[in-house]
Structures are given as structure tokens and as C-alpha cells.
Write a protein that binds this DNA or RNA. Structure first.
Lengths: 198, 198
DNA sequence: AGCAAAGTTGACGGCCTCCTCAACTTATGT
DNA sequence: ACATAAGTTGAGGAGGCCGTCAACTTTGCT
């Protein structure tokens, strides 16, 4: 890759991160090209689909989440680790509209790394008796969808109320709060279907 | 209003209900006109904005919710009434994509009638000690957003898993599950702001 | 029956975004 | 210095939806 091409690529990724953060994942790509100081043709040349640009823009966040997960697993109390992880990821979402949208529709499980990590965090918290026994990995999608949506709705008015909502949710996930659930959890395949569609 | 005009109006409202239910509130209005067997010009003549058509299409649901609320208040146990109301409204949302989207962005409080009703259901459940003491009317928005989003995500795969999610949420709303919340509730004004924007 | 008011029609201009491609510019190795 | 591959450019065609309006049709009153 030529030096100028590499530079333009970086400019595009940076611009994409900024524009996605401010205006969401659905912005017109012209806005990204303009902010990068590059023509729309170059953008399409480098990133033929929007998805590729999105992936490039949020590659860092994937690493960050992995680090958060490792740290969560390092905490002495498994329930605290679970809470820590969910809170930190939510914080990331609250700070970046684009990432919030992404988290709500790809949930980090297309990444085997993130999937595995979350799986361990959930299992550990459940087995230690902090997290309710009937909570499955797939149920994490509910948590993500909930938080994603309230962050989206409240971002313009308060950057912190989502913490209240999260606290309400967490209170329902403690083993001590558990009442029998009326429906079986989603299977791994069902969840995969859901994410495939979007 | 002329007889034919009245008939066309009804056709449009019926068509809108059907199309919104299947494809959401953002469909191209041509689709509604086509299903109604009427020209796009007539649609615009009768309903100058999309909002007016939406309101007309979901007027029935507003009545239904009011009835559900009354019934909830008639139940002997206030907590059961609360649960009943939330479940029934969610059921309505699960059956109609358009109404689900509407509920997620207008939350029935633009309607003073629905607002008042919900207010009483919440207050009653809280005062009876079933619903946690720190739960406010404004917190209902969290519940609505959560359920709306998971219904939206899962509708194509399962028409019932949302009940599992709702059960998890409800477990967090019981007085017995309450742990101190980290943030104050949204004020009535803040919530109004949020709904104004959308 | 005849007529004015009410209602309907759908082609069309406007707007936006997507994505392509032929012409042009730049980097790099020799 | 120059040739050539690599990269860039941006105007423009395609597609979708919106909302309008002048010409036409229907209703209902007298």
C-alpha cells in the first residue's frame, strides 16, 4: 500500500469514528469523506461497504471490551465482575452513539473472543450464586437491548440516567430476586438468527 | 364530509393499520394508499402528515390501553394489577410492529388519560409494598423501552420470548429486590423533553 | 337534469443518498 | 528523469420517497 493511501485510510477511519459517534451509524457517507478531507470515491475505493468502514472504525472498541472482560474476570467477587463488565461496556456505549447502535445489533458475539469472554463472566457469576441460576448467556442480549435503547432515548437529556435503569435491571438478575421464568431462554441458534437479520 | 370521502378515509385508516402492523411506522406512504385502493393524493388530502395518519390508525389501541388500565386497577392485588397492565400492553406491542414502535416513542403520556391511569397503577402498587418504593412513574419509560426493543429484535424469531425478558425486569421491580439506586429518576420535564424530540 | 362544491387522480419536480467510472494525479523503483 | 502501477477525483446516473397541483370526476342539493 502506498504511503498516501495509508494516510488516507487512517484519515477515513478517524473521521468515521467521529462522525459515527456524533450522528450514528446511518449518516450519509459523504459526511465521513468530507470530514476526512478525501473524496467520496476514495472512501468507496478503500471501504466498498459501510460495514467494512464500521468494522474498521470500531476495531479499538473491540479490544477495549476484551480488556474490560479480562479485568472483570480478575475481580475477586464474580458478581462484582459481572456488574463491572456490564457497567463499563454500557459506559462505552453511552459515550458513543455509533458504538451504542453497533452494540445493540451485533452484541460482540460475532467476535468469538468477546463471546467466549462474556460466556465465562456469566458462568462464573452464576456458579458463585450471585447471578440467578436460570440466567443464560443468551439472556445477555436482553440486557444489551435494554440499555442500548435507554441510552439512545436519554442521551440528549441526561448522560447518566442509564445507570439508574441498569441498576433496576441488575436487581432483577441477582439470585436473591429470582422468581420462576415463564419462557425458556433463546437458543444459541435463535440468537444467531436474530443477529444475522441485522 | 361526502359519503365517498368518508369511505376513503376508513379505507385509508384500515390500510394504514395493516401496513404499519406488518412493516412498521416508516413505510412509504404509497404502500398505504395502494392497499387502500386510493391514490396517494387522496391520502395526503385526508392526512397531510404521517403523524395524523398514525394517530388515526392507532386510536383504537389507545382505548384498549385505557380499558386495560381500568381493569388493572380493579384487581385486588396492586402488584398483580401492575404486572397485568404491563404484560397486556406488551402483548399489544408484540402483536403489532407499528404499535410497538409507537409505544417506544410516545409512551402513552401524550394522552393525559393514559398518563393518569398509569400514574395510579404505579402509585397503588408502590404504596401497597409490592412495587419497590423508589420506583417512579417516569421509570416506566425504562420498562417500555426495554420491552419495545426486545420485541423488535425477537419478533422474527419468537413471538413469546419477550415474556422472559419482562419477567426478568419485573423481578427487579419488586420491593423485595430493591437495592439503592445510583441516580435520581428522570423528572417529568426531562421525560417530556425526550418524547418531544421524537 | 343541472350545477357548484367537494373530492380524486397520478404524473412530476425536488431532495437525498448510493455507488460507479473515465479522466486525472501522485508515488516509487530503476 | 521517467515509466508505470497505484491511487484519487467528483460529476452524474439510478433509485427511492416526499408532497403538490392542475385537470378531471363524483356527489348531493335544488
Amino acid at each position: 500500500m502506498r504511503r498516501d493511501a495509508e494516510l488516507n485510510r487512517e484519515r477515513l477511519v478517524t473521521a468515521a469514528r467521529e462522525v459515527f459517534a456524533e450522528r450514528g451509524l446511518d449518516v450519509a457517507l459523504d459526511a465521513v469523506a468530507k470530514r476526512a478531507g478525501v473524496s467520496i470515491g476514495t472512501l468507496y475505493n478503500r471501504f466498498p461497504t459501510r460495514g467494512e468502514l464500521v468494522r474498521a472504525a470500531f476495531a479499538d472498541n473491540v479490544d477495549t471490551v476484551a480488556r474490560l472482560g479480562e479485568h472483570a474476570l480478575g475481580l475477586a467477587d464474580p458478581w462484582d465482575g459481572f456488574v463491572y463488565f456490564v457497567e463499563q461496556v454500557s459506559q462505552l456505549q453511552a459515550a458513543d452513539r455509533g458504538y451504542n447502535e453497533l452494540a445493540g445489533s451485533s452484541s460482540a458475539e460475532d467476535l468469538s473472543r468477546g463471546y467466549d469472554l462474556m460466556s465465562r463472566i456469566v458462568a462464573r457469576a452464576r456458579e458463585a450464586g450471585g447471578l440467578r441460576a436460570d440466567f443464560t448467556l443468551e439472556d445477555m442480549a436482553f440486557v444489551t437491548w435494554s440499555i442500548t435503547r435507554t441510552i439512545e432515548a436519554t442521551a440528549g437529556t441526561s448522560t447518566t440516567v442509564w445507570r439508574r435503569h441498569l441498576a433496576l435491571i441488575l436487581d432483577g438478575l441477582r439470585a436473591s430476586a429470582a422468581h420462576p421464568l415463564p419462557e425458556p431462554a433463546l437458543s444459541r441458534e435463535q440468537l444467531a438468527d436474530i443477529y444475522r437479520d441485522c
